[in-house]
């Protein structure tokens, strides 16, 4: 069977809604696009622990602290589910981690923003995880089985992240004037980056055509973004917080909330490495890799010694 025939069979399978599984024949670019997407996604989960980790020691109560710890541990788990899914495409985990710590790989631009106040922890759970859920629910319907199953699992766990963040911010918004101002300030700073994290608008998205034809993505960035906006605006209202967009209005005809223009210059600046925390995030990952090295080495030597003992005994 020649390549053209194989590609046709592959496309037919995708069009009929079947999942593609590990080790099946796939077009080289399908494999590459997926490795790119899944590894960026995995890196985002791992780097995403850093802005939140910043507040563990300063959580205002034991309850909030336990919740934050559990949430960050989930993010580590999500990173690992995703590396595991990427590996089914024949790439080594070590290679992916190298790409991250050498600065070759991208991760979600939003994690290059700092967490300046405790309210930012609420904003991340509510907005960043809220946007991630909408995106990941879409990706869960995608064509690659291992990625889609990782998404289903992650979405279930994200729901807790989303709710704890909203609860945190809602409580602040019902508190003293200073607490309410802190909540509003967090919303002001995280709103637009959350809108942007769902990716370039459809007109400028260079990977969209192919990824949609292969059902790696089943909806466009703008469609997913609109869903996030429609869900989130009423949640802000319920908390008595104001979305920082003077042009925001409800369109009675379409039933959708319409936002003002998105500042894409900022988005691309941050992606290119000029966000407020890009260097810091990269350095933290490099240090983690370096400082964990002796643990991995020790574990390896221990495993070898145990195995040798067993062979001797036998």
């Amino acid at each position: 069977m020649d390549i053209a025939e194989k590609e046709k069979q592959f496309q037919d399978k995708i069009d009929s809604g079947q999942k593609i599984e590990a080790k099946e024949w796939v077009p080289e670019n399908y494999r590459k696009q997926l490795i790119r997407m899944i590894s960026q996604h995995a890196h985002s989960e791992i780097v995403g622990m850093l802005p939140e980790g910043n507040w563990i020691t300063r959580a205002p109560s034991l309850r909030r602290k336990a919740v934050l710890l559990a949430k960050i541990q989930d993010e580590a788990g999500h990173g690992l589910y995703l590396y595991s899914a990427a590996e089914t495409l024949g790439v080594e985990r070590g290679e992916l981690i190298d790409q991250l710590i050498t600065g070759k790989a991208k991760y979600s631009s939003i994690f290059n923003y700092p967490t300046l106040t405790w309210a930012d922890i609420g904003a991340i759970g509510w907005l960043v995880d809220g946007a991630a859920i909408v995106n990941q629910t879409m990706l869960a319907r995608g064509s690659y089985g291992p990625y889609s199953r990782a998404m289903v699992r992650i979405c279930k766990e994200e729901s807790f992240h989303n709710r704890q963040g909203y609860e945190l911010l809602y409580d602040l918004a019902q508190g003293t004037p200073e607490q309410k101002a802190m909540a509003q300030d967090a919303l002001n700073r995280w709103w637009w980056p959350s809108i942007q994290m769902l990716g370039p608008s459809d007109a400028d998205s260079k990977n969209s055509g192919e990824t949609m034809r292969w059902r790696i993505k089943v909806e466009s960035n703008d469609t997913v973004r609109q869903r996030f906006i429609d869900r989130t605006v009423p949640q802000a209202e319920a908390a008595g917080l104001t979305i920082p967009d003077p042009d925001l209005k409800f369109n009675e005809e379409t039933g959708h909330w319409e936002i003002g223009e998105i500042d894409w210059t900022e988005f691309y600046q941050v992606i290119k490495g000029y966000g407020p925390c890009n260097k810091k995030r990269l350095r933290a990952r490099q240090e983690a890799e370096h400082e964990g090295e002796w643990v991995r080495e020790a574990a390896k030597v221990y495993a070898e010694k145990q195995a040798a003992k067993k062979t001797k005994a036998a």
């Binding site: 590996e87 080594e92 985990r93 070590g94 290679e95 981690i97 190298d98 710590i101 890799e289 090295e293 991995r296 080495e297 574990a299 390896k300 495993a303």
Partner: peptide, 8 residues
């Protein structure tokens, strides 16, 4: 290359 990740 980063250190050995161990067996899969």
């Amino acid at each position: 290359m980063s250190t050995d990740q161990g067996m899969l």
